[in-house]
Amino acid sequence: MNEQAIKDLLYKLADDQLILGHRNSEWTGFGPILEEDIAFSSMAQDKIGHSLAFYTLLQELGEADPDTVAFTRNANQFHNSQLVELPNGEYDFSLIRHFLFDNAEIIRFEMLSQSSYEPIAKVATKLKGEVKYHVLHANTWIKNLGSSTEEAILRLQSSLNEALPYALGMFEPSKYEQELIDSGVYAGEEAVKAEWLKRIQAVIEKTELKLPDLESIAPRYGGRYGNHTEHLQPLLDEMAEVFKIDPTAEW
């Protein structure tokens, strides 16, 4: 088994969770209604817990400890997709991003629970149950708001159009794609994307929203190998602000 390939996979999983977890936490105290404030805060806590589970597997493969990995790298060392680093924007954008991301994430976890690499399979088996709540939450709100008022539909449609190139960027192939597929570690991005498309279509069809032709959209690749938007570094600076005051402090 190629350890580099597995690390590559673990980093992108963990970094997506950490960065989106941080973005979700920015809704704490600002949610449009109390329940949504709590929902995004809870999902933040889950996602940061999920990133910890994957960073712990990386540590077992010889990488630095989770706090060091999370708090001391610069933007060009992060493997998250650009989708998760974009600012929250208004609630409609956060909701659309959450819908597009978590519907992909649950498929990754379902597939990884069958992974030939046992440590990943165990973690994924656990996490897919938790992320189910995130998917239920996203799908319920998209169905409700996507067929409600004209303003809600217009806002969601415009956020959907804006987020899609970045969402497709989630499926940027890994340098080790074929190797991971051949060794049964991971079913690969194309497989995840095909299933994702089916699932998001099934929800969108129940609303007034329209899914644009994805073939005509150029995916925003680059995030998996350190190429990020200008939004990531300020997020990292803020996230690590307290940690960097005293990196040796016991918490």
Binding site: I38, A39, S42, M43, Q45, D46, Y133, L136, H137
Partner: peptide, 13 residues
């Protein structure tokens, strides 16, 4: 069901 997310991760409201 009011919300699947409650005061702690393991509770719904």
């Amino acid at each position: 069901l009011r919300t699947p997310f409650g005061p702690t991760l393991c509770r719904s409201m």
